[in-house]
Design a protein around this nucleic acid. Structure first.
Lengths: 242, 242
DNA sequence: CCCTATAAATAACG
DNA sequence: CGTTATTTATAGGG
């Protein structure tokens, strides 16, 4: 026996695979594990390298959720915002803190309304579509699908939230959000009538990039204080497998 | 024969780098862009390959939020997470009221962030721009101007509405000269893309049983309901660049 | 952006 | 889980 070439030791090495749903249950599991690990590592590296905040959740095909990053930290940043801490109440900071929160709430509501409006903003260019719709008309079918699904869910949340706000006026118990379980949505398919893809490949001048909207000129009390650019550390993620 | 050894054409090729905060502003930006793109691609592949649900949010060092996958997943985590009630003390009506307001504040902030994320939503087309930017880029100068004008109008409406809301709503005195900066408006400086924001998310849903935090090898149990392993389709992400 | 040289991630297999 | 053979991801530079 002179040659055993085809295999020195381990396997044959990596093979190229198509990016499509793996049907083999076994391989699926393996792939998920390996890739999830790699993904998390990348997320961590990005965070450490650039100091960016990253939050990532992946549900295994079995339904088990894996979280990377530190979601709680993000939330924490809001709760502890700029000012005092909740447990810190000595002479009369109670009232004070309350006022502050009320104030912030007000600001946040404004911001929310603004953003909401922005999304449903009507370009008014003759057609009665919102700019969003107009934009969508220029997308490819795939882009459309992808976007539509995500949009609908988001819109729903917003709508729901708005409803709550209007109803209770101001005394909402947020976390007990209602029951729009329409998660599955129409996500996968668009209304048949939306298939006409307008391929307007209008190339524009780059000067557009310099056009800046200066809303700041107007003095509105919008905005929040939450600019505590929190640093994310490697420890926040699992990096023991490097 | 002569040799042009060290460089045939481009750069010297990849160099190994330490995974630690990059200080050079310029390189930081480049790295973030490249790596974010790669990360999103991986996330998408994992999702398509294994059918797993993936949600990912990355805040650029500048604070701009980029979203990939299904944001709802992230939101769910935040809302159901523990951070809801910091300290349960509701005997005192005053205290109670405070808690409510703060809770709502939290929700509002989350909503705001969610909307912002939506606006900066990454179509995943390999493009680094948000759909909004992409859209704006596709407008003519005139259209842009028109839009700017309309936007400003919108601003006023929103301000007005906020005013109303405030009147009929709570008692907070947010009208007094606010000391906080304006973040929300900066968001609308469309092309520039150098905003500032807050981070966090919002929403609800109930499908978390076992939450495994990868970053700590630590496991928190949110033993709640069963997991409704929703199916995620390739369409949910954009993968036209494979 | 585009390239190239090289570091990393990972599919197939034991 | 550990190895190996390849495919991918990317740091630098133009």
């Amino acid at each position: 026996m002179m040659e055993m070439k085809t295999q020195r030791k381990g396997g044959d090495g990596r093979k190229r695979i198509k990016i499509e749903k793996i049907k083999d249950k076994s391989r699926l599991q393996v792939t998920f594990s390996k890739r999830r690990k790699g993904l998390f590592k990348k997320a961590t590296e990005l965070s450490v390298l650039t100091g960016a905040q990253v939050a990532l959740i992946a549900f295994s095909p079995a339904g088990k959720p894996y979280v990377c990053g530190n979601p709680d930290l993000l939330l924490d940043r809001f709760v502890n915002g700029e000012a005092s801490d909740i447990h810190q109440k000595d002479d009369d900071p109670e009232q004070r803190r309350y006022m502050e929160v009320e104030k912030e709430l007000e600001a946040e509501k404004k911001r929310g309304i603004l953003l909401e409006s922005l999304i449903n903003y009507d370009l008014g260019g003759g057609n009665d579509k919102s700019w969003l719709d107009t934009y969508v008309d220029g997308l490819s079918l795939d882009e459309l699908k992808q976007m539509k699904s995500d949009m609908e869910q988001l819109q729903k949340c917003v709508a729901q939230r708005s409803q709550d706000l209007k109803m209770t006026g101001n005394t909402a118990s947020s976390s007990s959000s209602s029951s729009y379980e329409d998660k599955s949505l129409a996500l996968m398919k668009l209304p048949a009538g939306n298939d006409d893809i307008v391929d307007d490949d209008y190339l524009n001048e780059e000067m557009v990039n310099e056009l800046v909207f200066d809303f700041d000129s107007q003095e509105y009390d919008f905005g929040t204080t939450t600019s505590t650019d929190q640093e994310i550390t490697a420890d926040m993620f699992s990096d023991d497998y490097y």
